[in-house]
Amino acid sequence: RADKQHVLDMLFSAFEKHQYYNLKDLVDITKQPVVYLKEILKEIGVQNVKGIHKNTWELKPEYR
């Protein structure tokens, strides 16, 4: 399990490339446990629960 700041850096870097990611792809990118990753994502992102981007994560507007 990596340092939180290191995980945040990896996530922000990923979100610079694409606006939406599913959790599986973010786990592959960060190599972090799902529960730990979700904890961090809830602080900086929102999970889309409907629409064409259903079940994906994106950054909260203040982090874009």
Results as ranks from 00 to 15, higher is better:
24 K>T: 13
56 T>V: 10
9 D>F: 03
50 K>Y: 07
12 F>D: 05
5 Q>R: 10
37 L>P: 01
31 K>V: 03
50 K>H: 15
46 V>F: 12
42 K>L: 12
52 I>Y: 11
63 Y>A: 09
53 H>T: 09
51 G>P: 05
47 Q>Y: 11
17 K>D: 08
33 P>K: 07
46 V>L: 14
36 Y>S: 07
9 D>P: 03
15 F>G: 00
35 V>G: 15
43 E>K: 05
18 H>K: 14
50 K>G: 10
58 E>N: 12
52 I>C: 09
61 P>G: 12
45 G>R: 03
4 K>E: 06
29 I>G: 02
54 K>Q: 09
4 K>R: 12
36 Y>G: 06
24 K>H: 09
63 Y>M: 13
1 R>Y: 03
29 I>D: 02
34 V>P: 15
39 E>Y: 06
45 G>Q: 01
61 P>Q: 10
24 K>R: 14
36 Y>H: 12
54 K>S: 09
39 E>R: 10
21 Y>R: 14
35 V>L: 11
37 L>E: 00
5 Q>V: 11
61 P>S: 14
20 Y>D: 05
7 V>G: 01
3 D>G: 11
63 Y>H: 13
6 H>P: 08
10 M>Q: 09
10 M>E: 06
13 S>A: 13
60 K>S: 07
5 Q>W: 05
17 K>A: 07
52 I>M: 12
47 Q>V: 10
41 L>E: 00
42 K>V: 10
2 A>F: 07
46 V>I: 14
35 V>W: 11
35 V>A: 14
32 Q>W: 04
30 T>M: 03
17 K>G: 05
5 Q>A: 10
28 D>Q: 04
7 V>N: 02
59 L>S: 02
43 E>L: 04
18 H>Y: 06
54 K>H: 12
22 N>Q: 12
29 I>Q: 06
48 N>D: 13
51 G>S: 07
53 H>K: 13
50 K>V: 13
12 F>I: 06
58 E>C: 14
34 V>H: 08
56 T>Q: 14
38 K>H: 06
26 L>K: 00
59 L>Q: 02
4 K>H: 10
56 T>A: 14
53 H>F: 06
28 D>V: 09
46 V>R: 10
24 K>Q: 15
25 D>M: 04
56 T>S: 15
41 L>F: 02
18 H>E: 14
60 K>W: 01
11 L>I: 11
21 Y>Q: 10
42 K>Y: 07
12 F>S: 08
13 S>T: 12
2 A>D: 06
33 P>H: 03
61 P>C: 04
22 N>C: 11
6 H>M: 15
52 I>Q: 14
27 V>G: 09
34 V>Q: 15
38 K>M: 15
26 L>N: 01
20 Y>V: 08
48 N>A: 11
17 K>N: 05
5 Q>P: 07
29 I>E: 06
21 Y>D: 01
38 K>R: 12
11 L>H: 01
25 D>G: 04
18 H>T: 07
37 L>K: 01
32 Q>P: 00
37 L>I: 12
61 P>F: 04
4 K>P: 03
23 L>F: 06
16 E>T: 07
19 Q>E: 14
21 Y>F: 07
13 S>R: 15
57 W>Y: 07
62 E>L: 06
2 A>Q: 14
29 I>P: 01
45 G>A: 14
17 K>I: 04
26 L>Y: 01
60 K>L: 06
64 R>Y: 06
39 E>V: 04
63 Y>E: 05
13 S>L: 15
15 F>R: 01
37 L>S: 00
58 E>V: 08
33 P>R: 04
7 V>R: 01
6 H>D: 12
24 K>S: 13
55 N>W: 05
49 V>F: 06
21 Y>A: 08
14 A>T: 04
33 P>G: 05
54 K>A: 13
51 G>C: 04
49 V>K: 13
